[in-house]
Computed example of a mutant assay.
Amino acid sequence: MQIDHASIEAHLPPFIDDLMDDLAELVLADAKEFCPKGETGDLAESLRHEVNDGIFRVGSDLPRAEWVENGTPPHVIRPRNAKALFWPGAEHPYGQVNHPGTKAQPFLRPALWIKREAP
C-alpha cells in the first residue's frame, strides 16, 4: 500500500481550518463571557476570531483590550490637545496626573486555557 501524500496535503488544510474555526468559536464565546463589560459592553462586542492556514486568532482591534488583559503600570498622563487636564469633579485643572496603573483583568488567556474535549 502506498500513501498518496499529495492527496493528503490537498485535503488536510481545509479540514484543519474547519476544526480551528470550531475551536476559535468556543474560545471566542468564553472570552466574551469573561470580558469585563463596563458601562457599554463594547469591548466584549469588539471580540472577533479568524482562521488562516491552520492558525486561529481571537482578539479585539480596540487598543484598550491589551490594557484590560494585561493591566498597566503606573504612568503619567499629560494633556495632548490642551494646556491642562480637567474633568467634572476635579478641584482645578492639572498639568499632569500620576495614574496608579490598572490591575489586569484577563479574559483572553483564561478563555484559551480552558480544557476542551475533541468533538
Rank of each mutant, 00 (worst) to 15 (best):
R48Y: 09
Q96C: 06
V51S: 14
S46N: 08
T40M: 11
D22V: 10
S7D: 09
A10M: 02
F86S: 02
I3P: 00
P73E: 08
V58G: 06
P110M: 02
L28H: 13
A6L: 04
H11E: 05
L62K: 14
L26K: 06
G101L: 09
L12H: 03
F34Y: 07
P79R: 00
S46A: 05
L19G: 00
E33R: 14
G95P: 01
V97Q: 08
H75W: 07
D4M: 02
R116T: 01
P73V: 10
D17L: 08
R116Q: 00
W87Y: 12
P93I: 08
Q105H: 09
I77E: 05
I114H: 12
I8N: 03
F86G: 00
I3T: 02
N98E: 12
H99R: 11
G101S: 11
G38D: 10
A84K: 04
N81H: 04
P79N: 01
R80K: 02
E45V: 09
A24E: 02
L108P: 00
A90W: 11
G95L: 14
F107Q: 09
E45A: 15
V51P: 11
E69K: 08
L19H: 10
E50G: 15
G89S: 07
A111I: 03
E50W: 15
P88D: 02
M1E: 12
E45T: 07
H49F: 12
A10P: 01
L47P: 04
P13V: 03
L47W: 01
P79V: 03
P74T: 13
D17H: 07
Q105Y: 03
H49L: 13
V27E: 03
A82L: 01
L62D: 07
I8M: 04
E25M: 14
E39K: 09
E9Y: 06
P106I: 07
L26F: 08
D30W: 11
D17G: 05
L112E: 03
Q2L: 13
F107C: 02
A82H: 01
D18L: 14
A65G: 04
D18S: 12
T40E: 10
K103V: 15
G54N: 09
C35Q: 08
G89N: 03
E25R: 15
K32I: 02
E39H: 06
D30P: 04
Y94K: 08
I16V: 09
P110I: 02
A82Q: 05
H5W: 11
E69F: 05
N70C: 10
E69L: 09
R80F: 01
Y94C: 03
K83Y: 05
H49S: 14
A24S: 03
F34T: 01
A6P: 03
G89H: 10
K32H: 06
I55N: 14
D21L: 14
I8H: 04
G59W: 04
L28G: 13
